[in-house]
Design a protein around this nucleic acid. Structure first.
Length: 238
DNA sequence: AATAATGTCAACCGCTAGTAG
DNA sequence: ACTACTAGCGGTTGACATTAT
């Protein structure tokens, strides 16, 4: 199994590597839109490409897929990425699955080039230890690093959140331990389990939990949960 | 204008998990 | 149970673009 998972074919055959040409893109796109991808290792051959299946798969997923969203990340997306990274760590594919039209690679690059830098800069210049309300976060240039309002406004999400961020349906301790603090949504599996610093949670249950959490946090579900969020925000920040 | 430093992002690498025979 | 294979993931690299000196 020595070659398992590698571009084994690339070693044996003279397959192209590196950037894709427009012609290659067109071939791959045409083939997949007409026939679907099926088994990736056969796609290259059937599409008439001198590429390995792995390369074709990556090109389709990260670039050619018609449902991809292009352009810069909105502030809402940036906030979601940061929140999800707090919860999931470097599980880029899981983060991407909650951002329609975005790829894990795109999010990973964005994190490594942009957000990480902002967090580092902020760490070098610690923020005033004041609490921030959601509207303060909303109105600041916290994500974009826009200096137009008087300098760097970078911070980590948790640094600017109130100590008792009880508008969130969960709470972090210093060791990233998840603690019960709200009646909704339902607690994740293994209450008190560490998130990405410790054992591996049951991904499916986590996934369900996170979906509920995110829907709740960002008002995707209207109704009772939204009313409760409003009440919590009102109670804690006004 | 030239060059160095830095940032961005597409693509590759190496690994694990899952599955079929 | 074992082997061979594919799919998918996260880390890393390197080419190119942009900015600073």
């Amino acid at each position: 199994m020595a070659m398992q998972g590698r571009h084994s074919g690339c070693y044996k055959q003279k397959l192209r590597k590196g950037l894709w040409s427009p012609e290659e893109d067109e071939k791959l796109f045409d083939h997949i839109t007409k026939h679907g991808h099926g088994c990736w290792s056969s796609v290259a051959k059937l599409a008439g490409l001198q590429r390995c299946g792995k390369s074709c798969r990556l090109r389709w997923i990260n670039y050619l897929r018609p449902d991809l969203k292009r352009g810069t990340f909105s502030e809402e997306e940036q906030r979601l990425i940061i929140e999800l990274h707090e919860l999931l760590g470097n599980r880029w594919s899981q983060i991407a699955s909650r951002l329609p039209g975005r790829t894990d690679n795109e999010i990973k690059n964005f994190w490594n080039s942009c957000i990480k830098k902002k967090l580092r800069l902020r760490a070098e210049k610690p923020p005033d230890d004041e609490l921030a309300t959601p509207s303060m976060i909303e109105n600041s240039n916290w994500f974009t690093g826009d200096r137009s309002n008087g300098g760097d406004t970078f911070s980590t999400p948790t640094a600017n959140l109130p100590r008792d961020a009880s508008f969130l349906p969960f709470r972090y301790s210093g060791t990233m331990e998840l603690q019960s603090c709200a009646p909704w949504p339902a607690l994740p599996p293994n209450e008190g389990a560490e998130i990405h610093t410790g054992g591996d949670p049951e991904d499916l249950k986590w996934s369900e939990y996170l979906d509920g959490t995110i829907r709740f946090m960002y008002g995707i579900d209207q109704g009772r949960e939204q009313q409760q969020l409003n009440l919590h925000v009102q109670k804690n920040f006004e």
